[in-house]
Simulated scan of single mutants.
Amino acid sequence: MQFMMFVVSDPAAEPYIPEQDNIAEWVAGTTASGTRITGDRLRPPAHATTVRVRHGKVLTRDGPFAESKEWIAGFDLLDCASLEQAIAIASRHPMARFGSIELRPFWPLDVEEDPRQREAREAGE
């Protein structure tokens, strides 16, 4: 199973302590084990551009769409045998202490299938 792991800043989390930041060790270990496919940091929300199309016109806005104290600081793509394995890997990431980690399983796109039929099938309807 593939998971997108969002690394999220969280002002309510433990204070950041650089000496406890073991990100290099986490990246090396998960890459060597083959569970981390790729990942990187993201620039702060002030560097974001929001893109929308309304009435056929492309609209852009500097900064994030939502105003929030939390923001996505990075991402990693994981390939794990199960959600439990992904949780174990995410729990060792330093931002699990200094922020939060959100895991989302991939939902493969089949352009030939009606998404409503797929949702109903997966919901067991």
Results as ranks from 00 to 15, higher is better:
M1S: 14
F3M: 03
M4P: 01
V7Y: 09
S9Y: 07
S9D: 09
S9K: 13
D10V: 12
D10I: 12
A13E: 09
A13G: 10
A13T: 14
A13M: 05
P15N: 08
Y16M: 15
Y16K: 10
Y16A: 11
I17E: 15
I17N: 09
P18Y: 00
E19Q: 13
E19V: 12
Q20I: 05
Q20D: 15
N22L: 06
N22D: 11
N22G: 12
E25H: 14
W26K: 06
V27T: 10
V27D: 02
A28H: 11
G29I: 01
G29N: 14
T31K: 07
T31F: 04
T31A: 08
T31Q: 11
A32P: 06
A32K: 10
G34L: 05
G34M: 06
T35Y: 00
T35R: 09
R36G: 02
R36K: 08
T38G: 05
G39E: 01
G39W: 00
D40Q: 11
D40C: 03
D40V: 01
R41F: 12
L42G: 04
R43T: 07
R43H: 07
R43L: 08
A46V: 13
H47R: 06
H47Q: 14
H47I: 00
A48P: 09
A48D: 15
A48F: 13
T49Y: 02
T49I: 15
T50D: 10
T50I: 05
V51A: 02
V51E: 06
R52A: 08
R52S: 12
R52P: 01
R54T: 09
H55A: 14
G56H: 10
K57C: 04
K57E: 12
K57D: 03
L59H: 12
T60E: 03
T60W: 05
R61H: 14
R61M: 06
F65L: 08
F65G: 01
A66C: 02
A66E: 14
E67C: 08
K69F: 05
I72Y: 09
A73M: 08
A73T: 07
G74Y: 13
G74K: 08
G74S: 09
F75M: 04
D76Y: 02
D76N: 06
D76E: 14
D76R: 00
A81G: 15
A81Y: 11
S82V: 01
S82D: 10
S82H: 10
S82I: 01
S82Y: 12
L83G: 02
E84M: 02
Q85M: 12
A86E: 15
I87W: 00
I87Q: 06
I89W: 12
I89H: 05
I89A: 11
A90W: 05
S91A: 13
S91N: 13
M95R: 07
M95H: 05
A96T: 05
F98R: 03
I101E: 02
I101Q: 03
I101M: 03
I101G: 03
R104H: 04
R104A: 01
P105F: 02
P105W: 03
W107S: 10
W107H: 04
W107Q: 07
P108M: 00
D110Q: 15
D110L: 09
V111W: 14
E112P: 01
E112S: 13
E113A: 12
E113P: 04
E113H: 03
D114A: 10
R116Q: 07
R116T: 05
Q117N: 07
R118H: 07
R121P: 14
R121G: 10
A123N: 14
A123H: 11
A123I: 12
G124A: 06
E125C: 06
